[in-house]
Nucleic acid binder design. Structure first.
Lengths: 132, 132
DNA sequence: CCGTATCCCAGCGGATACTG
DNA sequence: CAGTATCCGCTGGGATACGG
């Protein structure tokens, strides 16, 4: 297959952003990925199996879950352990690095939950003001 | 125009994810947006003008910056102030809500900067192992 | 300077079917 | 169960040109 992986976007050239921010971009891209965030949150409390994650998230396709997990594995954020049993069983678990990331991510999730109502209101208000 | 705005994805139905997480999804989608994150970070230290932001980020198109700012404005995260001078001048600034969000976002950015090398190494290692 | 309007294409991501 | 392979529609987002 070799899907040439994700963006890892070799971000647009030019000395516009200071290089630290620039380097962080490719990392933030991972976080920026909708599904990655969910998976990281799900894995926050212990290892999970493929279909287990799939069910917990809900609405993610087999394909996207695979791709997402591969991406996370590639970045050293999750480990993939195969049990050569029948039927086969595969566990995914956050690495040390992954657990480190899950903290800020959870903080974000927490914020999102807390302020969701405010944002919803802001949205409807904005939409109301700009309707023809 | 009315671009029917963004996703605000009316996330996939089904009782898979507990409803709190589900509601947070549309908020996380904002954060998940690459450009939104950058803009929030840029605006972290005071109000900025349109082209100022554009230059600081670098590599963002006029169009995308406009859309991003509109999205953030809609969500009540930034304010847009127009000075009817000639030439016109428009300032963007984080709202109280936006500043609240900028904290977790910065934490994430910080993490990204700190652990970027590790991730880079993980990536090359992974790619090396899987090359044909 | 700060946008909006059009054109246009790569690639994200869903649905489905097939293997070990 | 845990994937891989294929097809394909949709839209995110760049390039460009124009308006206030």
């Amino acid at each position: 297959m070799r899907p040439e992986h994700k963006n890892v976007p070799a971000f647009p050239p030019g000395p516009h952003l200071d290089s630290d921010c620039r380097g962080a971009a490719s990392v933030l891209a991972r976080v920026g990925d909708k599904w990655s965030v969910f998976v990281i949150m799900m894995l926050g409390d212990g290892a999970k199996r493929f279909n287990e994650i799939k069910r917990m998230i809900g609405g993610i396709s087999q394909r996207m879950l695979t791709l997402t997990l591969r991406g996370l594995e590639r970045d050293g954020l999750v480990t993939r352990t195969v049990f050569p049993t029948i039927p086969p069983r595969v566990d995914y678990e956050l690495t040390e690095l992954g657990r480190g990331l899950s903290a800020p991510v959870k903080a974000l999730g927490q914020w999102a939950i807390e302020h969701q109502p405010e944002i919803q209101r802001a949205r409807t208000k904005f939409d109301a003001r700009n309707e023809s």
